[in-house]
Every structure is written in structure tokens, then in C-alpha cells.
Amino acid sequence: MGFYLRTSLKAGPFRFNLSPSGVGVSAGVPGFRVGTGPRGNYVRVAGLGTTYFGGGATAPISSGSPMPMPPATRNDGIVMQELSGAPVQQLVAAHPSDLISQIQAAARRHLLWPWVAASLTLLALISAPYGLLLLVPGLPGVWWLRQRDLARRSVVVFYQVDDVPALNYERLITSSSFVSRVQRVWHVEAEGALDTSYQRKVNAGAGALIRRSPAQLNLAGPPVLVTNIAVPSLHGKDRSVYFLPDRVIVRHGAQYAGFPYAAVNAHAQVQRFIESDTPPADAPRVGTTWQYTNKSGGPDRRFKNNRQLPVMLYGRLTITSSEGLLIVWDFSRPDVAAELAEALCGMR
């Protein structure tokens, strides 16, 4: 299938290969032991179900009911509701797994080699010219430490996807156009209704105000995950969603949670948006309005520099779960949001 990228994986000095007898590992640097490196996981997804090799499921983590984020009131009286859903720490308890535990542990490990490299450079400069001799044994040591850090911050997973799940996953990657088809994506962080006529007047006549940040689509996957497949991913400022063949992984900062597709709902809708920035070239333009409007929709002459704004047609993708997951994305092309929602529903 087209989503397979490689047959062997590298994590620091370790190389993993999948063979009929299982996942094999070798180390190419003296001083590294296989027992101190990342584990190799094997996941087979087929029409009869999903099989995991590499560790058992972890015990559930106890937690209380999800606590919704309280609305924040701006100085102009607009109440903004955060669209963040339940905290990731609570979402972890809903569907615990060994893979998520490994990813969490790897993400929490700090890189040591940059600090050692900076300290070595500073010491060499302070004690120059003789201190420069420290670089002779020091640079190989920094390289060795960097390889160690890469190994400790890597989770290796081999996927074998067959039958109908393979077709569905291929459709997810191709129909959602994760590489280049959509020009802009935004993570919608908060939304507030404009209740008064004055609030609507000074906000181009809109019915709601949103807070958003730029996002991107790619096939990179979680930074600590080393795998043999392309992983469609949506990346926001501090939240990301990764679509694996067997589950959806959500990241908030350094915290991760996983959900089976059966537990995730995806919904797309068309969104009229008054664009104050430069509009994307691939978005349909359906009208114009004024930054400050009067009751009839025309420009309010009492405001100086009252510019005309384009009304664009965007696509909104909302991903939810019954456990409290909520992430909202806007796409400059409505058809891309609709295709992605349809493909995600096909993974259930």
C-alpha cells in the first residue's frame, strides 16, 4: 500500500527490522546495549481485528469527571468559551494502552546533549587555547550522548495493515489531502457569541467571534514515534492530532491520549467567515462587508479607516468523543474538511 514508507527503522544507534520471527534490533555504536534502547512494537490491523505485540495494556488511571473550561469575558463584554474539551490527563484514563504509556514516557525525557555541548564549548573558550584540547574527547562524547538521547526519546512501532482497514487508511491519507491541496488550516481555540448590536457593529456584523492560531497538515506523526508508515497529522500551536491505522492520538503539550476510531466522532460543516487577514487563494469568496457596519449592512461613516472585508467560505472539522475530547479546525477549502470527516468516519 502507498502509506508504507520503509521496512527498517532507526532510533539513535539502534536499527529495527521486522522478520517472520518478530522484531529484531541491532546497535551500531559501542557502549549501547539493546536492553537500554527503545522497545520494538508490532501492530497488525486486519479485517478480523487488531493484534498488538510488544506489551500489555496498562491499568486504568482513576480520574474524576471532565471539568469544562470556564468562559473568559473580554473587556468589551464578549464571553469566549474555550474549545479545548477535557484535559488530556483525564482523556488518558478513558482508553489506556501500552503504546500511549511508552509515548508519554519518551516525551517526558529531556535532551541532555545540548546542555553538555554548550558547557563543553563554554569551558573550552574560557580556558583557551589549552582548553580547546577538551574538544578532542568531548565532541565524540557529545555525539554518543546525542545518540543516547535519540534512543531514549523514540518509540518504535511496525504496522502491518491488511484487508479493509488498509483500504480505509489509504483513503484517509489520499482523500484528506495532507500534503499540499489545502492552502491554510487554523486551530480554533475559543468562540464567543456577539449578543449586542454594538458588538456586531464593531466586528463587521458577524454573529460570533473566534480565537484561532495557524496550523498545518503533514505526514510526520508524533515526534517521538518512529514507524514504517505515513501518519496523517494536524498540528496546532500546542495541540495536535495524529491518525494511526488503529487509533487517533491527541497531543496537548507533552501529554498524549489515544482513542480507537469507534470512540471518535468527526463532523464537517461549511463556515462563512469574515476575513481580516489576507484571504487564502483557494477559499471561495462569497461576499464582502465592512469592518464597522450599520444596521442596513453598509459602512458606518462615524468610524475612520473603515475598510471593506471579504466574506470567505471555509470548512470546519470538529473532532469529539463521549469522554470529553473536543478539537476544532478550520480549512480554507470546505471540501477538504468534508472529505477528511468522511474518511475518519470510514475508519470506525
Rank of each mutant, 00 (worst) to 15 (best):
W113L: 08
P129L: 02
L112V: 12
I103L: 15
L18M: 02
L120Q: 08
S97I: 00
P280S: 02
V164N: 10
G324V: 02
Q90K: 11
A118F: 01
L132H: 10
L132D: 07
F259A: 02
N294V: 08
S322E: 13
G55R: 04
Q199G: 06
S240Y: 02
Y169T: 00
P71T: 04
G287Q: 05
S175P: 04
L111W: 06
W290S: 13
A27M: 03
R74A: 14
V231H: 00
A105R: 08
R307E: 07
G324L: 08
Y292K: 10
P68T: 04
F3R: 00
S127G: 05
L313P: 06
T318Y: 01
V328W: 06
D300I: 10
V34I: 13
T320M: 02
T227V: 05
R211K: 10
Q183G: 10
I100T: 11
G77M: 06
T278R: 09
R184S: 09
Y130M: 14
A283T: 11
P165V: 05
F3P: 00
L112I: 14
L325R: 07
L18Q: 05
V92W: 11
H267V: 15
L167P: 11
K237L: 09
S233A: 05
V224I: 09
W144E: 06
T196I: 01
T7W: 15
S63H: 11
G205A: 01
A204N: 03
R171T: 15
A206I: 00
L344A: 06
G253P: 09
L194T: 01
E82W: 04
G28N: 13
L209M: 05
L122W: 02
T73P: 11
H235S: 10
F331N: 11
G192C: 07
Y292P: 15
T293L: 04
R301L: 15
L217H: 02
Q271P: 09
R251Y: 01
D238L: 11
I126E: 12
V202F: 05
P279S: 05
A263S: 12
D195G: 07
D277Q: 14
R15E: 15
L112K: 14
Q216R: 14
L99F: 04
V250G: 06
T196V: 02
E191R: 07
Y42T: 03
L5Q: 05
V157P: 13
E82C: 13
V155M: 03
L225Y: 01
L244H: 04
L344Y: 03
V248E: 04
F273I: 13
Y292H: 14
S119W: 01
F243I: 01
R211T: 11
W113M: 11
Q255L: 12
L326P: 06
D300P: 05
T288A: 14
S84I: 12
V226D: 02
V142E: 07
N294C: 07
V248F: 02
A94T: 08
S63Q: 09
L219S: 00
A118L: 06
G12V: 04
G64I: 00
A94R: 06
Y159F: 08
